[in-house]
Simulated assay, not measured.
Amino acid sequence: EKESLVRRLAADKGLAPSATVHIRSIPEKITRCIDNGWLAAPVTDVVHQLLELDGPAFRRRIVADAAQQDARDDALCHPLLLNRWRDQLTETLVEMAPSANNAHTKHLHDLALTNRPRSDAQLRRLHDRRRMFAALLQRRSESVRLITSLNDGMSLAERRDPSYELLKKAGDQAYNELVRRHPGLYRHIRARLARYETRYGRLQLTEPRAQLRAQIYDELDRMRPAHIASPARS
Rank of each mutant, 00 (worst) to 15 (best):
D110C: 01
D110F: 09
D110T: 03
L111N: 02
L111E: 07
L111W: 01
L111D: 02
A112M: 09
A112L: 03
A112S: 12
A112G: 08
N115C: 02
N115E: 05
P117D: 13
P117I: 07
R118A: 15
R118H: 12
S119V: 08
S119D: 07
S119E: 06
S119K: 07
S119C: 02
D120Q: 13
A121M: 10
A121F: 11
A121C: 14
A121T: 10
A121Q: 14
Q122T: 12
Q122E: 14
Q122D: 12
L123I: 12
L123F: 09
L123R: 14
L123C: 13
R124V: 13
R125N: 07
R125C: 08
R125D: 14
R125G: 01
L126G: 05
L126C: 13
L126N: 07
H127W: 09
H127R: 11
D128K: 05
R129G: 15
R130S: 02
R130E: 01
R131M: 08
R131Q: 08
M132T: 02
M132P: 00
F133D: 04
F133N: 00
A134D: 13
A135D: 11
L136S: 01
L136K: 01
L136W: 00
L136F: 04
L137S: 04
L137M: 09
Q138E: 03
Q138R: 06
Q138H: 07
Q138W: 01
R139M: 06
R140F: 06
R140K: 15
R140P: 10
S141P: 08
S141G: 15
E142K: 13
E142I: 12
E142P: 01
S143D: 05
V144Q: 10
R145H: 14
R145D: 15
L146M: 06
L146A: 03
I147W: 07
I147E: 14
S149P: 02
S149K: 08
L150D: 00
L150T: 03
N151W: 00
N151F: 09
N151G: 12
N151T: 05
D152W: 01
D152E: 03
G153H: 10
M154G: 02
M154W: 00
M154C: 05
M154D: 00
S155R: 08
S155G: 08
L156Y: 13
L156E: 13
L156N: 15
L156M: 15
L156D: 15
